Amino acid sequence: MKEGLLIGELSRRVNLPAQTIRYYERLGLLTPPKRTASRYRIYSADEEERLVFIQKAKRFGLSLDEIKRLIDLRADGVPPCADLQAMVKQHLAELDQHIQDMLTLHQELAQRYEYIEAVLSDSTEAPNETLCNGKICGLIEQDIEPE
């Protein structure tokens, strides 16, 4: 009788496709599982816990390489908390920059929309070559002054 979970059972329990579990194994995020006599993988509760850890770490925005680093540090007997702190700090800085970039894009897009709306609403007829003068669409090609 087997002791552990077949990959399908593990897949259902952790809500991950079996191919993802095999991929994590190839990357070294999971230790190679034991095999049955017929070569089926048998996973222990430790692997199930490891997969739950990986899923939680991914929700922190950590990459698989970063997660592997934390796992490897722990396997070497080193608490990975300081490394995690540095990783999360870096991700927060990147997220802050991304938010700033998105806010800038939002402002530029809103200004462009106001310009387009003003140009098109001033016309009593459908957009024509005079309004949309440009190689493709002058409303995109024209530079507008920021407000």
Rank of each mutant, 00 (worst) to 15 (best):
A118P: 02
I42Q: 00
K34I: 10
P33D: 04
A37Q: 12
Q19H: 14
S44N: 01
K89F: 08
D83F: 02
I71R: 09
Y115N: 07
T36R: 02
I54S: 01
I54G: 00
P146W: 08
N15A: 15
E3M: 13
E117F: 09
T104P: 05
L16Y: 06
L95Q: 14
K56A: 10
I67R: 00
G28E: 03
G77R: 03
D76E: 15
A45Y: 07
D46S: 15
P80V: 04
E129T: 15
R74Y: 06
S123E: 08
A118K: 13
G134S: 04
D83I: 07
L84S: 06
G138L: 00
G134Y: 03
E47D: 10
A82V: 09
L92G: 01
V14E: 00
T20I: 05
Y24Q: 02
L109G: 05
V78Y: 06
E129L: 14
H91G: 03
P127Q: 08
D72K: 08
L30Q: 06
A93Y: 09
M87Q: 11
A118H: 13
E145L: 10
G134I: 04
E145F: 09
D46G: 09
K58L: 11
D101L: 06
C137D: 14
R41D: 06
Q107H: 15
Y115R: 00
G138D: 06
L70Q: 01
V52M: 09
T130N: 12
P127V: 03
R26C: 03
A86S: 10
L62V: 01
H106P: 01
I116L: 08
I21A: 00
L27E: 10
I116E: 02
Y115E: 02
H106D: 12
T124I: 07
I54R: 03
E47I: 02
L131S: 09
I21E: 02
R74N: 08
I54E: 05
H98N: 11
D72M: 04
L5W: 08
L103S: 09
S38I: 06
R59C: 11
L131K: 07
N15G: 09
K2S: 11
A110Q: 14
P146S: 06
Y115M: 01
R35T: 07
L29R: 00
I21M: 04
E125S: 12
C81E: 07
M1T: 12
N15E: 15
K56G: 02
M1G: 13
P79D: 13
Q19F: 09
Q107F: 10
M1Y: 09
P32S: 12
K89S: 15
L62Y: 03
I99Y: 00
E141P: 03
E47C: 01
S44T: 15
P32V: 04
G138I: 05
E108P: 04
I144K: 04
E9P: 07
A82W: 00
R39K: 14
A86E: 08
L51D: 07
E94L: 13
P127H: 05
L95Y: 13
A93F: 10
E94H: 14
R39F: 10
V119I: 13
L27K: 11
V78I: 14
A86R: 11
V88M: 04
A57I: 04
G4M: 01
Y43T: 03
S123L: 06
